[in-house]
Design a protein around this nucleic acid. Structure first.
Lengths: 204, 204
DNA sequence: GATAAAAATCTACACTGTGTAGACTTTCTG
DNA sequence: CAGAAAGTCTACACAGTGTAGATTTTTATC
């Protein structure tokens, strides 16, 4: 990998390699979509990016590394968005907004997110990335639950544990629904929102 | 041709192969536990079962087939148990019993169940097996919700969709918790049970 | 208990995909 | 424009897979 983190040194021109690297990740994403991780070979990716296998190994050490970089790119984007999104104090509204945002995320990045989940177990770096992402969600859900009056704490029926279960519910439900259609995903989101509301004691 | 041993000779001989087949699946399960699916090779399995690779291919056509058979064996066992377990009418008790049973299942077969979930996407047969298993759970949860007064139907806030979301919540929560410890799993179960009860409107 | 079919096992090989080595070409930079 | 850095290629060694065919063991039958 040539570019580590060159944030401070401003480069005059964008190196050819930066372009290639993006082409590689884009190709990888496309291949993931219609071949899946296992069927996709390093040769396929290289070919799609317009170079030979040998050249690809100049950028990434393995197929896994390519996918890790792809997941990192996407996840970075998620963090970015969740950081710049306004937080609402009113629980009901906060929940509605969170679910809406999550639907958008899955509509846009469902494929990579599903891949990240699938590879979490086998590729430690991806596991790391994804578990960090999940923690962001769990923290956010916990905050909403507490603001809605659920007792804070880590015991099974307190906010923290409930938030974790709700997070997994949303992850898994969206994982499946996003494979179907946007309509399915929207419906699944409504169901999750309803359960979240009920769990928060906001059933009016 | 006349059959000289009418009743008694049914399945009299257990072939040597039946023993080997079991040895292969057992070895596979053991290897999955401390190497994981990808790292485990056909040679490893054969060696563990005391035969060569070539001989293993007499029993199974591929590594995937071995794992499919292993999952099938386990899942068969799940179905068996859920069929012979008494169903309770009282919702609260039904939920408590279902959760207890599920904890036991994951304690006993967590490894294979996690494997099944991981491979659902990439191995169609396993996907089939697992989705059928999930359907059993979803149907059961739906029934309990309806008995508790939740409106029947498939709209986002009706019993069927809610049961699906709750099923995924339990699956994913148990998937993670069963990797930790029995205590973690027990706590996670309590949390899921609480959310299920709340969703069913049984919060007294 | 001899024997032939079936069941089980082995060795050897062809194939696919991975990752590495080293030579070569292009693109910067002073 | 010359040397360095970046990028690319071909060729090779290696892992694991699945198959072919010969060979041995087990089982059923007379």
């Amino acid at each position: 990998m040539p570019s580590h983190h060159p944030a401070r040194s401003r480069r005059s021109t964008e190196r050819k390699g930066d372009l290639r690297e993006r082409a590689i990740l884009d190709t990888c994403e496309a291949l993931l979509a219609h071949k899946g991780y296992n069927a996709m070979t390093v040769g396929d990716i290289a070919q799609g990016a317009g170079i030979t296998r040998g050249a690809l190994y100049f950028y990434f050490g393995s197929k896994q590394e390519v996918v890790v970089a792809l997941v990192a790119r996407t996840v970075e984007h998620l963090w970015e968005r969740s950081r710049t999104t306004a937080q609402t104090d009113e629980p009901r509204q906060a929940i509605a907004e969170a679910m809406q945002r999550t639907v958008e995320l899955w509509n846009e990045h469902g494929l990579v997110m599903r891949t990240a989940i699938d590879l979490s177990l086998t590729v430690p770096e991806i596991g790391e990335l994804w578990s960090h992402t999940a923690d962001l969600f769990i923290t956010a859900i916990t905050a909403v639950l507490e603001r809605a009056g659920i007792q804070a704490g880590t015991e099974p029926e307190q906010a923290s544990a409930m938030a974790r279960a709700l997070c997994w519910m949303i992850e898994r439900t969206f994982y499946h629904a996003s494979q179907e259609s946007r309509e399915t995903l929207q419906g699944a989101s409504a169901t999750c929102e309803h359960i979240w509301l009920t769990s928060a004691g906001l059933t009016t």
